Simulated assay, not measured.
Amino acid sequence: MSAEPLIEVDGVEKVFDVRRKAGFLRRERHEVRAVDSLTFSVPRGEMVGYIGPNGAGKSTTIKMLTGILTPSAGRLRVAGIDPSRERAGLAHRIGVVFGQRTTLWWDLPLIDSYRLMRRMYRIPDARYARNLERCVELLDMAPLLEVPVRQLSLGQRMRGDIAAALLHDPEVLYLDEPTIGLDIVSKVKVREFLRDLNAERGTTVLLTTHDLTDIEQLCRRVMVIDHGRLMYDGDLDGLHELGGGERTLVVDLERELAPIEVESARVVKVEGVRQWLTFPAAHSAAPLVAAIAGRYPLADLSVREPDIESVIARMYAGGASLTY
């Protein structure tokens, strides 16, 4: 993996003018600072989680990085290109998936959207066939190709959008909530696909999500943004330590038993064979799982991450400082 920055953000700001009603016939002008003095860089080939609560400035950042919006101040470069000035040239080097908005043609079968994109991006036939075959196989999309996009479920459409964003071999991929609406099996497939994509092709990925499991399984680095400012830039364990959060281990036993007793965790709820245990978010779940499996008749278990809003709330409560 190269240390060469593919994405460079230096002192970037985005201010919107908003007019609000201030009387029967009068409106007042207000400035809304969606992004405030944002600075970071992403090396080529890195997968980065870009997270924060709703309204934090994540989507505004992505829109500036793709050239949809122009910064009010500061400097942006993606693959050496100023996105707002060379948007058409940049489009051939990036892929974008916005969770609730599709790039597919609503009334056409999925395969027809892909054929149109092949023409739009002037993708050579051999490359198009190779990339389409790989996406269809790994994302389990063969039964969906002849289905009109409007008939797809949200999860199916998300897989379709991810494939569409990769047909032209982009250097960088922006993903906004890529596992939204997916069942557990589909989430696993998408995560495996993205992990392989990054490992095999060195595709740089900037991932925004509310699902910290996506971040934990895909990204070594995480950036937290709130009120347009970068609050944290480091690994996920460091974020949990800063926020002081807890994770929850949901354990299904083969039969009803007294509350589980293991070191570094406590039972907070018991319902029949199911028990809920909390433990520090910065700690690995592996020793805890091993201890329970060795001493109790275990049927199933799962780990639930704290949501990002609660982590950020704890950061504020603890007076956490910005990390650059």
Results as ranks from 00 to 15, higher is better:
residue 120 M to P: 00
residue 134 R to I: 01
residue 85 R to H: 10
residue 175 L to Y: 02
residue 187 K to L: 07
residue 127 R to E: 15
residue 153 S to I: 08
residue 191 R to P: 00
residue 135 C to H: 03
residue 126 A to Y: 09
residue 178 P to A: 07
residue 86 E to N: 13
residue 109 P to F: 05
residue 160 G to S: 12
residue 100 Q to M: 07
residue 132 L to D: 06
residue 169 D to Y: 11
residue 202 G to T: 01
residue 84 S to A: 15
residue 168 H to G: 00
residue 149 V to K: 00
residue 66 T to D: 05
residue 130 R to Q: 10
residue 81 I to P: 01
residue 156 Q to T: 03
residue 130 R to S: 05
residue 84 S to P: 06
residue 192 E to F: 08
residue 118 R to F: 05
residue 105 W to G: 01
residue 130 R to F: 00
residue 107 D to N: 15
residue 113 S to A: 12
residue 166 L to T: 04
residue 185 V to Q: 13
residue 113 S to M: 13
residue 78 V to A: 04
residue 201 R to W: 13
residue 114 Y to L: 06
residue 132 L to M: 13
residue 135 C to A: 14
residue 177 E to V: 03
residue 140 D to N: 11
residue 153 S to A: 07
residue 105 W to K: 07
residue 99 G to V: 11
residue 93 R to Y: 05
residue 178 P to V: 06
residue 123 I to W: 02
residue 93 R to Q: 14
residue 108 L to I: 06
residue 201 R to G: 02
residue 196 D to W: 09
residue 72 S to E: 09
residue 106 W to G: 02
residue 149 V to Q: 02
residue 169 D to H: 12
residue 160 G to L: 10
residue 164 A to V: 03
residue 75 R to L: 11
residue 115 R to Y: 09
residue 133 E to V: 03
residue 173 L to H: 03
residue 123 I to T: 03
residue 160 G to N: 12
residue 124 P to I: 11
residue 174 Y to W: 08
residue 145 L to V: 07
residue 176 D to Y: 04
